[in-house]
């Protein structure tokens, strides 16, 4: 039961992070390896805003810090796109390398200014509840509905707004999109900002639950990357399914074996999928 609850709540956060990563790949054909960094910045910006701008005020101040953090991370992502990626956006290798360099840079920056130890933010809610006889922290319980809400909002946006349709159009046929007058560059910028916002939301949600250190970005990057490929690079539903799958495997193995073994098993599964089914579990490209 605990596995189910934790698997669901962590899986929903994984999904938030992975969906953005996949979306950017589908639209731009690029892998933004600074995606984990954007997640991490979500947590850090929340901490910064809450402690320094809103002077550790009440719940309202915390909510305001969340919003400011998400907006800030989107702006950072836009800066990253316009300043660094656009230089050679057609080269998947260049974008991977330059985004990694950026990730390393942010890591060092955070180490210098916030130290290597963890940074914490108080939670929106306190206490815990009993769910089917399992004691769960309230802040843990909050993850699933908020993430699901964000995912559904993303789905509605893609499905029903003109901007969302342009994202889908570019992902499915870049040339077709150009020929109806869509500018893929602009759509990619918008997509990167949205993906960053989702990652930042995940980061802010997690910031009160797990420790955030300047090096967590790589852990989350590998998660997002693996989920993206397990789900079939380019498929959003695939990414969501894979996110929950991975989280269940991890939680289940952590409960039955030790922490270390849990991660090892997850890694081995990724290797197996890469080797035996590289197109992912859901192979159709679906955005």
């Amino acid at each position: 039961m605990e596995i189910l609850i934790l698997g669901l709540s962590r899986g929903s956060v994984y999904a938030l992070v992975a969906v953005g990563f996949v979306l950017v790949f589908s639209v731009g054909g690029i892998l933004n390896l600074a995606h984990g960094t954007l997640f991490m910045l979500g947590a850090y910006f929340t901490y910064i805003y809450f402690n320094f701008l809103f002077g550790q005020g009440g719940t309202l101040a915390l909510l305001a810090s969340y919003v400011c953090a998400i907006v800030s991370v989107s702006l950072v992502a836009l800066l990253l796109f316009f300043a660094l990626f656009r230089r050679k956006i057609d080269s998947i290798s260049y974008v991977m390398v330059v985004s990694l360099a950026f990730a390393l840079f942010v890591e060092q920056f955070m180490k210098v200014y916030f130290g290597v130890t963890s940074t914490g933010v108080p939670s929106l809610v306190r206490g815990s509840v009993d769910i089917f006889g399992v004691r769960v922290l309230n802040k843990e319980v909050l993850l699933l509905p908020i993430s699901l809400f964000a995912l559904v909002a993303l789905h509605m946006f893609l499905r029903h707004s003109s901007a969302g349709q342009s994202i889908k159009a570019v992902a499915q046929s870049r040339e077709g999109a150009i020929l109806v007058g869509i500018k893929p560059d602009r759509v990619l910028a918008m997509t990167i900002a949205i993906a960053a916002a989702l990652a930042a939301l995940a980061g802010t949600l997690i910031s009160s639950l797990v420790t955030v250190t300047p090096t967590v970005w790589s852990y989350w990057l590998i998660k997002a990357f693996a989920i993206a490929i397990v789900g079939g690079l380019g498929s959003l539903p695939g990414a969501v399914v894979a996110a929950f799958l991975l989280s269940f495997v991890e939680i289940a193995t952590t409960f039955t074996l030790t922490d270390q073994y849990g991660e090892l098993v997850a890694l081995m599964i990724i290797v197996a999928i890469l080797l035996f089914r590289p197109s992912g579990l859901m192979s159709s490209r679906q955005v």
Binding site: F225, I229, L264, L274, L275
Partner: peptide, 25 residues
């Protein structure tokens, strides 16, 4: 051999991660 681009990159990352996990275990 069969893997290119992102798939290749992920495989190499994951192999290195497996090794360092094994070192801890």
């Amino acid at each position: 051999l069969r893997l290119r681009g992102p798939y290749f990159a992920l495989l190499t990352i994951v192999f290195a991660a497996v090794l360092s996990k094994l070192a801890y275990i």
